[in-house]
Design a protein around this nucleic acid. Structure first.
Length: 560
RNA sequence: UGGGGCGUAGCCAAGUGGUAAGGCAUCGGGUUUUGAUCCCGUGUACCGCAGGUUCGAAUCCUGCCGCCCCAGCCA
């Protein structure tokens, strides 16, 4: 990074800490709870934490915050590891779990009790809530707050030993029940939970709370900068309180930044989970989901996601970023690399009346207009073709330069054709076009330099490959579904449309998850779950920009 | 109505006392056998509002307004 380039406030702090010699090496961590899949919001945190360390020659941990067994599972652990790696980051041998430290955490708890900084409370959950006070009224001390160290030690040992039922006792920090900061009103440190933990099994029946486990884990791992989101800002005094008690040689500093919210998307694990549980989407990796798994299956390149969060920036201001920014990153990423192919999503038959019945010509098609080194492929052309329904209009406006009655258009890499006749069914719907082609206009031969305004894509009927193509749209109709009272009310019923498409034969050889551009339509890839050679299934990653659609929309609005 | 944050163009975002970068979107135009890509060009943003300090303030001070977060034995 050059001197003149501006740094976000966190990178500035880190830069200063390195410059001043406060730290020789930066150590960060990304600490997800394995209770759900990672989403766009996490992408930002991952890029920040791993990015900042990588940029400064530091190191980062991938640490699972697994302190609440019962709602956490290995499935999520596996998914999270895969997602972080796919995004392009590496934690080397620094994959840890809060549960790795359960023994050390417990030792610290004992030390806290011994120093009088923690005590065992025996109030019920309801009573504790009452004693806590409210936002505007101070809380009051628990009657158990002044138990002796010996009593507390014995009780804590009993808790660990399994002598008590869930909820019977609770280890609390002794701080200040009248603090205006709720987090300091004697926060819970350990609760009793007779639950099997996914990693430690039945070794424990007491589990540490987030603030305690997280702060100490940071200290144990000698994290220098503990970067988290804004909602933890008022936990910082507690974070610092723990550090004051522990006095670690390497004292981590917590810095908060605002979350990244994506327009028309939800980024709440609870709600994302509800979408999955209620069957509103097909799973955590449904291509409409803003999860990393969903976006990967959709075909979003990891580099585009990284670029996206980079454009969002790192600040403390609440942000709601437009979908268009994400889509542009994807288009920009794919534009240079994706090879071009042709596919017709909503087929309309065209018969070339002056083209011989059994004739087939192989047309040379460029794989990428801007990169001739990517070569060409052959596309069979015959008497009957499929073109896009949208590329024909019976009563077309002046600026519509596709096909219309008695109008001409060029077939991409083919001939100029003219629409002579429109065939309709009883319902009055156009079902076929009879056209004639001009043999002198074959693409590339130059026997005629006639120009027509429009060029459309096509696929030969006899050679077309049938495929199921999924067209995705935003999952919600509200810009900020996060704030809706009930997200069900703002679900977009048309977020998925599946069409029976006709694809050019070369698409049969498409390899894996490689993205291709269907000319004039968008970028597509095969679906990692359901695609097969026998039954091809494609996902639309993102459409191409469409200035015609924009014009149409404007025209519609003017009429209204 | 306690505490903690945040308020610069439609969306992001630089700027930290010297008279408002940049990106995306928008809107023009050029190239183009993808209405794509690419290339040019395009914005008076009352810097939340109102006062004050100063020769000079988005930047300092005061008051106000708006939005977000906190009362889990969740993270």
């Amino acid at each position: 990074m050059s001197e003149t380039e501006s740094r976000d406030f966190i990178r500035q702090i880190i830069h200063d800490d390195l410059e001043s010699g406060k730290h020789e090496q930066i150590v960060t961590r990304f600490p997800p709870e394995p209770n759900g899949y990672l989403h766009v919001g996490h992408v930002m945190s991952i890029c920040l934490n791993f990015g900042v360390a990588a940029e400064t020659g530091g190191r980062s941990y991938l640490r699972f915050d697994d302190t609440n067994p019962g709602r956490e599972s290995e499935e999520y652990v596996t998914a999270i590891e895969r997602d972080v790696r796919w995004l392009g980051f590496d934690w080397a041998d620094r994959l840890t779990h809060a549960s790795d430290y359960f023994e050390r955490l417990y030792e610290v708890a004992i030390a806290l009790v011994e120093s009088g900084a923690a005590y065992v409370d025996s109030l019920s959950a309801d009573e504790i809530r009452e004693y806590r006070g409210t936002l505007t009224e101070p809380g009051k001390n628990s009657p158990h707050r002044d138990r002796t160290v010996e009593e507390n030690l014995a009780l804590l040992a009993g808790m660990r030993n399994g002598d008590f039922a869930d909820g019977e006792h609770l280890l609390r920090a002794r701080i200040d029940m009248s603090s205006p900061n709720m987090n300091l009103r004697d926060p819970a440190l350990y609760r009793i939970r007779h639950v099997t933990h996914q990693r430690t099994g039945d070794d424990w029946c007491i589990y540490p709370m987030y603030d305690f486990a997280h702060t100490l884990s940071d200290a144990f791992e000698e994290i220098t900068h503990s970067l988290c989101t804004l909602e933890f800002e008022d936990h910082r005094p507690l974070y610092d309180w723990f550090l004051d008690q522990l006095k670690p040689a390497q004292r981590p500093r917590q810095i908060e930044f605002s979350r990244l919210n994506l327009a028309y998307a939800i980024t709440s694990k609870r709600k994302l989970n509800a979408l999955v549980e209620e069957g509103i989407v097909e799973g955590w990796n449904d291509p409409r989901m803003p999860t990393i798994a969903g976006m990967r299956r959709r075909g979003y390149p990891a580099a585009a996601l990284r670029e996206f969060v980079k454009r969002g920036g790192v600040t403390k201001k609440d942000k709601l970023i437009e979908m268009g920014v994400l889509e542009n990153c994807i288009r920009e990423n794919l534009a240079d690399d994706a090879e071009r192919r042709m596919g017709v999503l909503r087929p309309l038959k065209v018969v070339l009346t002056n083209y011989a019945e059994d004739k087939v010509e192989m047309m040379q098609a460029m794989n990428h207009p801007g990169r001739p080194e990517l070569g060409t492929r052959e596309m069979p052309l015959s008497r009957e073709l499929w073109i896009e329904q949208d590329d024909f209009m019976e009563e077309a406006p002046r600026k519509f330069f596709r096909l219309k009655p008695e109008g001409e258009v060029r077939l991409r890499f083919g001939y100029i054709i003219r629409c002579d006749e429109v065939i309709k069914n009883e319902a009055g719907e156009v079902i076929e076009l009879r056209c004639s082609y001009d043999p002198d206009t074959r693409s590339g031969t130059g026997s005629s330099d006639r120009k027509v305004k429009g060029t459309i894509h096509w696929v030969s009927c006899a050679h077309a490959m049938d495929a199921s193509v999924r067209l995705y749209d935003r999952l919600f109709t509200e810009v900020n579904p996060n704030s809706a009272d009930d997200f069900h009310a703002v679900l977009n019923g048309d977020s998925l449309e599946t069409v029976g498409a006709k694809l050019e034969p070369a698409l049969a050889e498409l390899d894996g998850a490689v993205a291709v551009q269907f000319e004039r339509l968008g970028y597509f890839c095969t679906d990692s779950e359901e695609h097969s050679t026998d039954a091809p299934v494609f996902n639309r990653i993102v459409t191409l920009r469409d200035s015609w659609a924009k014009l149409e929309k404007q025209a519609m609005q003017q009429q209204v």
